[in-house]
Simulated scan of single mutants.
Amino acid sequence: MTVRELDAAGITDPRLRRAYAVCRELNARHGRTYFLATRLLPPARRPAVHALYGFARWADEIVDDLEGTPTAGERARALAALEGELAEALRAGPHADGSVPVLRALAHTASVHGIDHRLFHDFMASMRMDLDVTDYPTYDDLYLYMHGSAAVIGLQMLPVLGTVVPREEAEPHAAALGVAFQLTNFLRDVGEDLDRGRVYLPGEVLARHRVDRGLLRWCRDTGRGHTRVREALREVAAHTRSVYRDALPGIDLLDPVARPCIRTAFTLYGGILERIEAAGYAVLHRRVAVPARRRAAVALDGLARLTAVRLHRRIAHPRYAADTARPVPRRNVLP
């Protein structure tokens, strides 16, 4: 966490500053696309985004990557302990002082920006599902999981980003964007998820194309594709594109200084989907990625957009030129 970001956000307590630094490190290490996009936000808003991502990543590590190959029971106990500490931290708000740094930062962010605590509890409910649910028979089943694992992330972000309309109008688009990103991840990581014993592709789609775990495993083990698998993945990709279309109008409902950040994330994640399609859906044995040159070009475009917004704001509304430590308005902001 840079001193500039922490100072801009008005975070002065040394322990809290260290907690936010842990979250920023998690974002930088594990969320390349998110981290790149976050750097296009005004400095005062970045720590809150790092806190939200850091918490989500911390919980995900318990579910997926806890060292020592723990048993299901050990994972469940670790997740239950985190959930208990989360509830305590949220009750304490900005004065949270537990043993988990990411929770201190999260509680502070939730308090400063007025984020609904139910969104964090819904997230934890989906993390619990990952302990014993290994497949999803229908889209309805998958969307129940994605509400907590993805849609709520978009909803948590809205108070930090700010909107130019009543927040309720932007919420469906924010939730859709979280879902679109996760569906993209499911397509990109289908092979890795299979290694963890999970399939996040709807069973109804797989059945329609006569695809089962055995065929997915064969593709994973041999590095070869299969027509039926490609067609199933193509159908999920088409559905994912429709979710991106639902999400897109929401970008223009955000505070103008936040739009370049979200547009950059939207473009880069859409780029992952394009790479999956260009690879002929051969994702079971390798992980596709947006080339560095393309990522740089998208980031530069986002920076140009942000510069234009700042210039307009400086000229038209001088008193709004600096993004300070004040919380983002809950409703409307001047463009």
Rank of each mutant, 00 (worst) to 15 (best):
A299N: 00
A316Q: 03
L131K: 09
D246R: 12
T163M: 09
V199A: 08
Y34H: 07
P256K: 05
Y320Q: 11
D65A: 12
H117A: 04
G93S: 10
P101Q: 09
H226W: 04
L16E: 08
P329A: 05
T163V: 07
A87N: 03
G73D: 14
D64C: 12
A51H: 07
A28N: 07
L194D: 07
V288I: 14
L306Y: 06
A21L: 05
E235C: 09
F266N: 03
D255G: 00
A150R: 01
G31Y: 06
L90C: 02
L311Y: 10
V22S: 07
I276R: 01
L254E: 05
Y143T: 06
E274P: 00
T324G: 15
R29D: 10
G270L: 00
Y269Q: 04
D130Q: 14
A59H: 06
D60H: 15
L300K: 02
D122F: 08
V328M: 13
L183G: 08
V243H: 06
P137Q: 07
R128M: 09
A80K: 00
H50Y: 14
C261F: 08
L206K: 04
A258I: 06
R275P: 10
G270A: 03
Y20C: 12
A304D: 13
L216R: 02
Y200C: 01
E5H: 13
P14W: 06
G54F: 05
L334T: 14
H312A: 12
G98M: 05
F266K: 02
T69K: 15
V179Y: 00
L284C: 07
R224I: 11
R293S: 15
R295T: 10
D135M: 11
I276C: 01
L303H: 06
H121M: 10
L216F: 13
A308F: 02
V190C: 05
A59Y: 05
A28L: 11
D97G: 09
S149N: 09
A76S: 12
G270N: 00
A59V: 15
T267N: 02
V63D: 05
V199Y: 05
A107F: 08
D255L: 01
P166V: 00
A72D: 11
P159Y: 00
P47D: 13
V328S: 12
W218E: 15
A28V: 10
D323P: 00
R118V: 04
L233N: 01
M129C: 14
A299P: 00
R305V: 09
A296W: 13
R32E: 15
G191Y: 11
L311V: 14
L82E: 12
V63R: 09
R196C: 06
D212A: 06
V205R: 07
A176S: 10
L86S: 07
L334N: 02
V290W: 06
R293D: 15
I276M: 08
A59L: 07
L254T: 04
T33S: 14
H173D: 04
I115D: 08
M1D: 09
N332E: 08
R210D: 03
R314K: 12
L284F: 11
R208T: 09
L161R: 01
V133R: 15
D132C: 15
A81E: 15
E61W: 13
R287F: 02
V160C: 11
V63M: 14
A299L: 13
L158A: 12
L131T: 11
